[in-house]
């Protein structure tokens, strides 16, 4: 390892020392600047600086700035849109809730109304029924009284008619009497 290092060092020394001597016109070390190269560096850099700042950096940075601006605007727009959408959504939800409550209320009201109505109707019907039964009873009673009276009148009429017939044929006749009685009993059974 050491022999390699010394060999390498010797090589470098051997190659580097004559370099300064065999350089040609002017022996020039690595660290001595040359005017021509400095001049050209200055010129090339100045031109490059001018060209790049005018035709490269300015448009690129402008484009970047524009894009950032557009991005920022898009983000703000999106945020505004999202806010509006969420506001709309909450409003809609509120409306929906209100509508649902309304519907519930309407259904409850309807049910209550129908219940009440049914109860009323039932009550009314019951009353009417009772009324009708009462009237029917009264009618029947009246009819019965009328019929009994009519029957009695008819029976009197018939009795008078039968009696008249008997009297007409044979008044004071025993057999006649039996006949009348027979007739009367026959009516009675009718």
């Amino acid at each position: 390892m050491r022999s390699f290092l010394t060999r390498a060092l010797l090589l470098v020394a051997a190659t580097a020392v004559p370099a300064f001597a065999s350089e040609g016109e002017a022996p020039k070390g690595l660290l001595s600047p040359t005017g021509g190269l400095m001049f050209w560096t200055l010129v090339v850099f100045a031109v490059l600086f001018f060209v790049l700042s005018k035709f490269a950096f300015k448009p690129i940075l402008a484009a970047v700035e524009g894009r950032e601006q557009a991005l920022r605007e898009a983000m703000e727009q999106a945020k505004a849109d999202r806010d509006a959408a969420s506001a709309l959504l909450s409003e809609q939800k509120k409306q929906l809730d209100a509508a649902r409550a309304d519907a519930q209320k309407i259904i409850a009201d309807g049910r209550a109304t129908s219940d009440k109505m049914r109860a009323d109707l039932l009550e009314q019907t019951k009353l009417q029924q009772a009324d009708m039964i009462e009237r029917a009873k009264r009618d029947i009673e009246a009819e019965k009284v009328g019929a009994i009276a009519a029957l009695r009148r008819e029976a009197v009429e018939l009795a008078i008619a039968g009696a008249g017939k008997v009297i007409e044929k044979n008044l004071d006749d025993a057999s006649n009497r039996a006949l009348v009685e027979k007739y009367l009993s026959a009516i009675e059974t009718n």
């Binding site: 690595l30 660290l31 001595s32 600047p33 040359t34 005017g35 190269l37 400095m38 560096t41 200055l42 850099f45």
Partner: peptide
């Protein structure tokens, strides 16, 4: 080359 780097450094 030191000429180039020196010019850049001087600028």
């Amino acid at each position: 080359d030191i000429s180039v780097t020196a010019t850049l450094a001087i600028m």
